[in-house]
């Protein structure tokens, strides 16, 4: 059999193919398209951690007796005198993933970034195959490693599996005050994937393992895509005028005076002001 290929054409094609290989430093097409702005579904300020259940006791959080008692005390305080204002401290993981304000996800081969408008939280999920470091400096967002998975075998990644450790506190699951253990040994496992039938809907299946819980607690939170995003800068200290002095949290009024945040709250200790009246 005689096969005659035009040598010049083959060489040119090979050169073009080599160009392709070089250009494909990273192949975006292998990853799910997560561009745009993601808005938390049911993510109002009072959003319950498990969106399938009512807030507070209705969450049926699998708390140990000790931490159930802590929750009951928090709920009783809130019922008696309202909830104290929250300072500008990020909620941390896993509560960050309620996504109170819009989120952007930036996928690169070594790191997937989550940019959260609320409290300017910023998650780095390392997908470069790194091992857990011996000592993790505690952070509200923790330290996250992830792995992209092709669960349906179509040659494209569809799920980001993430594990997060190394948290610091205090943290709660939601604004009702469902507590996490003060030892901050929380481990959070997530499976993040686009909806199979709606590519503008993202799901995060979040499993929290914590010593305040009797068993791992899994909830699924969802996010809706806005493709024509407008990004608004949110600066908590600009609008939140709470001030922590001693063991108390006060507020600063619009006219610039220190004010109590609860009934019969004692004023601050002024021992360091020699000229106090």
């Amino acid at each position: 059999m005689v096969e005659r290929y035009p040598i010049g054409a083959v060489a040119l094609a090979a050169a073009l193919a080599a160009t392709i290989a070089g250009a494909r430093a990273w192949d975006e097409a292998k990853y799910p398209d997560l561009k745009g702005q993601w808005l938390g579904v049911g993510a109002g300020p009072d959003a319950a951690w498990d969106p399938e259940r009512p807030a507070g006791r209705g969450q049926l959080a699998p708390l140990t007796p000790e931490y159930q008692a802590l929750l009951e005390a928090t709920l009783a305080r809130a019922a008696a005198g309202g909830r104290p204002p929250e300072p500008c401290i990020p909620p941390g993981m896993p509560r960050s993933m309620i996504v109170y304000q819009p989120m952007e996800i930036i996928v690169t081969p070594p790191i997937t970034y989550m940019v959260l408008g609320h409290m300017a939280e910023f998650r780095r999920i390392f997908t470069d195959g790194r091992k857990w470091s011996a000592a993790i400096e505690p952070a509200h967002a923790g330290f996250s490693t992830g792995a992209w998975e092709d669960t349906d075998g179509d040659g494209r990644y569809d799920t980001l599996a993430v594990e997060t450790r190394g948290m610091k506190g205090p943290r709660t699951f939601d604004s009702s005050g469902i507590p996490l253990h003060r030892d901050n040994q929380t481990v959070v496992k997530e499976r993040i994937s686009l909806d199979r039938t709606d590519a503008n809907l993202l799901h995060d299946e979040i499993t929290t393992i914590d010593n305040a819980l009797t068993r791992p607690w899994t909830v699924t939170r969802s996010y809706r895509r806005e493709r024509n995003a407008e990004w608004t800068e949110l600066v908590c200290p600009e609008s939140n005028r709470t001030v922590a002095i001693g063991t108390e949290t006060y507020a600063v009024s619009a006219d610039g005076y220190l004010t109590p945040t609860r009934q019969r709250q004692p004023p601050p200790d002024l021992r360091h002001f020699p000229n106090r009246k």
Partner: peptide, 23 residues
């Protein structure tokens, strides 16, 4: 954790919105 002046002879904050005098 308590409040301190930032400069010499700085007056303490006005506590007019509190019911009782400073501790």
């Amino acid at each position: 954790g308590e409040l301190m002046p930032a400069y010499k002879d700085q007056p303490p904050p006005d506590l007019r919105y509190f019911e009782q005098p400073a501790k």
